[in-house]
Structure formats: structure tokens, C-alpha cells
Write a protein that binds this DNA or RNA. Structure first.
Lengths: 343, 343
DNA sequence: ATGAAAGCGCTAACAG
DNA sequence: CTGTTAGCGCTTTCAT
């Protein structure tokens, strides 16, 4: 059964006439080490000659570290953002010579349990949990002492990496204000504030939005509420707010998909963007750059969150420090395209 | 340094008063095995009691198999499809109790080399290479005897899993024909047929399209060529074909993004879809369902390709058979939505 | 039906 | 500067 194995330290030892221990030292020992430079040279030559690649399983068994981090995510598929998060994670991990093992879970807690067990079995050094909606979730209790982060979510015993929504909400409104808009409509406020198991940070986005409006002494010219942020909400919302406030100059949408629906409705009515109404939103998914005019939006930093999450893990691993159960917030940046007009 | 380790077989042996060998057998032995059922029971209890999870690194070192497959992909980020492919892969792998390790490469061959070395170091049992454009690529030569597949691409020594483009091209045209369309425009044929390093299968799609037209005794009412399949091409193309063939009834676009551009141009001209012109395309990215009217398109089976790729690997692993360097083609299916009118 | 012993490939003490 | 030895946690003969 046993697969044909590759060359081992013993092979190199044989080839060079040295001992395995020496070969090991030569290959992995620190720079100012105790092995003669000439020997090191000879060993390295033999190694590349033979196509030697150290067996990570053996090394891990011996050292107790796998140089592998785990990533378990809910619904990798459903989302347009998972790829960016994974990318950030991989960049950070590869740069520090760690491998990444992934698993996916859905809402079934049992599947989550299995994924965590698999990670535990493979003795990963650290674990990142990635969520596609910034919810609060339950994760299986930590058994070893591997550091954990949760990206775009909240969980016990996990340091959280989150989008910094409050300033983003504020920035969006301020952008509109800065361009001279005063009669603004809002589409997509949740009918009732979402529970933390549904969304942990959307409340903050709305707070920022409201604070900026309040400080400017303004109220929304019209509002259409709704929690399902898809184009349909934008179409319906646009129709409603236009009816309620025909003189509005800008529409702030909950996210790009809603904004897309707003575009559809406005264009169906023969209204021009941004001449007749400006539109702005949140997310910056790929769609935003394809819309016409291209959509001005606050970019959700998925890639950065992945990168920061992995870095946090790797730093904790390197320093041996405990990854405190704090929070790290990543700012959203304004992507200023063509859907907001200066009045 | 060594991390605090979890419970081992020895701990269970101690707790039950049995030997490690017996415990190992009890936990992993085949059903009709040689261990007394009562003993098995006792061991399992102790194991869950202690929270035992077998150390995969130790097991791998011993057995020579890691029960892990690797996935290296180019540009996980860039693409809207990577997530689906990964999802398919994970589903197949998890179902058969294998873990998945991922790495990403870009165009630099050196990074590819590094990724493959990392996979080799971790002694993965099989390797899937995923591409985002169905190109032909060079991969580092195989060193061990691990099976390899390439998904959505072509490479030496790799079994290829590809979308079956020829019948898909045919099916698209036939759908239009079946709905009574005769004056059809095509947007997005490459100005010159793409080299295999650029696209290995797009040629086949065009062949299918042309064959179906030919068999119906038809020629395209107008054509606009272009290789960069983004909305801009659709906008420009729509303008051109409308000019060249004002009486066209349908437009076949190279992909959904191009179709999106076509929508934009038609709607800007006050034309209605599908009343004034039907539109159909290829891919079925998420965008297609958000467009209005929802877009009829041929779905590229990324998820299935991931799943099939992993299954091929896992089957080869289980049977010990060599994964022949053949090809497996996965059909595209018609997603019939609302953008094609019956004449 | 169970146990003793060997060994997968590597690193880390400790000698020399 | 290099070699010897032990052992990480597991599976696998081979005995009993």
C-alpha cells in the first residue's frame, strides 16, 4: 500500500558520506551554525541533485508544529467575497511559509464540528474562521492552545477582524454632503435592527449614517426599509422614494445589489444617473465597476481582512503570545466613480 | 517550544488498561475484526471521554498517505468562478474524508514551482490544478506518483476536466432557432482564433455555434468581433450590429458580461428586451440572474468540474489505478430565463 | 483476542 | 564540527 516515497535525509547522508543529523543541520540549521560552510554546500548540492523535499509530516510529528493554518468558512460558494478573503489569507501565509488547509461548513452545527475535528486531526497551528455575513456564531470550544481568529464575524475565544462600519456609514453620507446633496433618500435600513446572530456590524453602519445626517442637521427625504439586499429591493425602493420625495437628488443604497436595482428602476423611468439622481452604496463588488455609470461605493475590505487575520495568527504563533480575544477593525475606503454628481 | 499536545493512543491505553496496538485496532480496525466488541466499545468510550482525535501527521508518516489533496489555482481572486470550483472540490473531498490544502499561483513560473514544492513537502496524495481560463499550461514534472488533474485547462501528465463547449455552442444557437429566430447577430468571436495557451476550448464553442447555423442554412445577420469579453465589447458590439442589421431579432453574446453591455446599449436606445431584441449568452455568472429581464444563458459548470476533478483523484487513489492522461468533458446546461422571446 | 516491538523521516540533546 | 541516540504518535507484523 505504502506509496513510493521520495528521497530522505538518509539518502543524502549516504550520498555525502555524512550522518543524517549533520545533513539535517546543514539543511535547516541557523546561519551562524556549527556545520562547516563547505559541508553545507556539499549537502545542499546533493539535496537538489536528488530532488529532496523535506517530509512535512515527519517534521511535524517531531517538532509539534505543522506550519499550516486552517481556514473554515461558511458558504464559500454563495459569496462573491470568499475568494478575496482566501486570497488575502494565502498571501500572508505563503509569505511566511505556511500552508493553508480549508474546509467549508454550512449552517448545520454538526458539519462545523466535523470541520473543526478535521483541522484538529491535522494539527494545524492556527485557525481562521471566515464568515460571509458578519454574524455572531458559536464555534466548538478550543481544545489545544492554537490561536484563533474570526474574520468578518464574532465568536467566543476568537480575536475578531471586522470591517469598520461606523466610519464608513459616516463617510458615505459625508461624500454626498460634500457634493452638495441635501435631499437624500435611504434604501435598505432593516425594518428592525438585526440581531447579532444575523449581523454584528450593520447596526454600526447605520449609526454612522444617522450620525452624519444628524450632525448636518438633516433628515432623509425618504426611506424605504428592507433586509434582503438584492436588486428587487432597489427597484421597489427607488419607486417608493421617488414617489415620496420627487425632488430628491441622491439615493444611498444599502449595498451594490440594491444600487443595481435602483439603476434599473431609474433607467426604466427614463431618469439619468447622476444627472437626475445620484446613487451611492456599499461593498464594491465587481458589479459596481460594470454598471453604467460606474458606481461610487464604499469598498468592503475582504482581501485585507483575510490578510490581517492570517497575519495576526502568524504573529501570535511566532511570538508565542496569546492572541487576545480583542477586535481589529479594517476601514472601508471610498471608491469614487461616476454615479454621484456635484451639485 | 513543542506545543502542548492532545491525548494520544497511549493515554487511552492507560485509561483502559489495554495496549496501544489494541486500542489502535479497536479505533480503526475493519468491522469484522479481531477485537472483542465489548473492548471496542470500551475503547471508544474512553476516546470520546478524553476528546481523542488521531494525529494525522503521525498516521501519515506511518502509512505514507496523508488523506489530503492539494489544489493549486491561478488567480483565485480574479475570478467569479473559483469559489464554485473550490466548493465542488471540497464537497467531494469531505465526503470521502480527505482534507484539502490550497495554494495560489500567478503567471510567474517561479511561484508555481514554490506551490508545487509546498504540496510535495506536505506529501499530498493527489493534486488538482485549477485554471480560470481554460488554457494550456506548463506544470512542473511529476516526481512522486501522485495522480493529477487539471480543471478547466490542459497540461502534460494531467487528466483534464473541461467544459464541453462544442455542444454548448450548438445548443445556444438551437435554442434561438427553436424560438423562431432567423436573423441573429453574434458578438465576441475572437478576431483570430486564440492560441491554446490562451484558450483551449473557446474554439470548440465557436465551432458548435457555426455548425448549428450552417446546418440551419443560416448565416449571422451581423457580427462584431472582439476577444476582451467585458461589458464595453457588448455596448460597442450592440451598436454596430444594430447598425449593420436593423432587422435582427436576437443577439448571441460571447458571455454574460458582454450580454450585460448589450443590455446597457439596447436600453440606452430605448429598445426592449426581449420584445425588440432577444439576448442570450454563456457563463451564468451571478450577474445573469440579476439582470432585468433575467438573462438566458448556458451555464459553465464550475462546481461540477471541481467535484469531478476531486472524484477522479480520489477514485484513482482508492483503486491504485493510474489516472490516464485523458479528458473528461462536462456539459453546459441551458438556463432558460427571460431574455429570449418566442417569435 | 490481545500485546510486544519495530519503524515511518525527522530533529534535538548530548557526546566526542 | 560531526556522529550517536532517542523518540514524536501511529500502524503493522508477529507472537502469545
Amino acid at each position: 500500500m505504502a506509496r513510493r516515497r521520495g528521497p530522505t535525509l538518509a539518502d543524502i547522508a549516504q550520498a555525502t558520506g555524512l550522518s543524517v543529523a549533520t545533513v539535517s543541520q546543514a539543511l535547516t540549521g541557523k546561519e551562524g551554525a556549527r556545520i562547516a560552510p563547505a559541508t553545507v554546500e556539499r549537502v545542499k548540492e546533493a539535496a537538489t541533485e536528488l530532488g529532496y523535499v523535506a517530509d512535512a509530516t515527519a517534521r511535524s510529528l517531531r517538532t509539534g508544529r505543522t506550519r499550516t493554518i486552517g481556514f473554515v468558512s461558511d458558504q464559500v460558494t454563495v459569496t462573491r467575497f470568499a475568494a478575496a478573503m482566501v486570497r488575502g489569507l494565502l498571501d500572508a501565509a505563503e509569505q511566511r511559509e505556511h500552508a493553508v488547509m480549508i474546509a467549508e461548513v454550512d449552517s448545520q452545527p454538526e458539519r462545523m464540528e466535523r470541520a473543526f475535528d478535521a483541522m484538529r486531526a491535522h494539527r494545524i497551528d492556527g485557525l481562521a474562521v471566515g464568515l460571509m455575513a458578519d454574524r455572531e456564531v458559536q464555534v466548538p470550544p478550543r481544545q489545544g492552545r492554537e490561536p484563533r481568529v474570526i474574520i468578518n464575524g464574532l465568536a467566543d475565544q476568537c480575536h475578531a477582524v471586522l470591517p469598520d462600519e461606523q466610519p464608513a456609514g459616516r463617510a458615505a453620507v459625508e461624500h454626498l454632503l460634500g457634493r452638495g446633496h441635501r435631499r437624500i433618500a435611504l434604501i435598505g435600513r432593516h425594518p428592525v435592527p438585526p440581531a447579532p446572530e444575523v449581523s454584528a456590524t450593520i447596526g454600526a453602519r447605520m449609526e454612522g449614517i444617522d450620525a452624519a445626517m444628524r450632525e448636518a442637521g438633516l433628515e432623509f427625504a425618504a426611506e424605504h426599509r428592507g433586509g434582503l439586499w438584492e436588486p428587487e429591493l432597489g427597484r421597489e425602493g427607488a419607486a417608493r422614494v421617488l414617489e415620496a420625495a420627487p425632488d430628491l437628488t441622491a439615493i444611498l443604497a444599502a449595498n451594490d445589489r440594491v444600487a443595481f436595482g435602483v439603476y434599473q428602476e431609474l433607467q426604466a423611468r427614463g431618469l439619468r444617473i447622476p444627472e437626475d439622481a445620484s446613487v451611492m452604496s456599499f461593498d464594491d463588488e465587481e458589479l459596481a465597476s460594470m454598471m453604467r455609470p460606474a458606481l461610487t461605493t464604499m469598498r468592503l475590505p475582504y482581501r485585507e481582512m483575510g490578510e490581517v487575520g492570517a497575519s495576526l495568527l502568524l504573529d501570535a504563533l511566532a511570538s508565542g503570545a496569546d492572541l487576545s480575544a480583542g477586535r481589529t477593525k479594517i476601514p472601508l475606503e471610498l471608491v469614487d466613480r461616476a454615479s454621484v454628481r456635484t451639485l
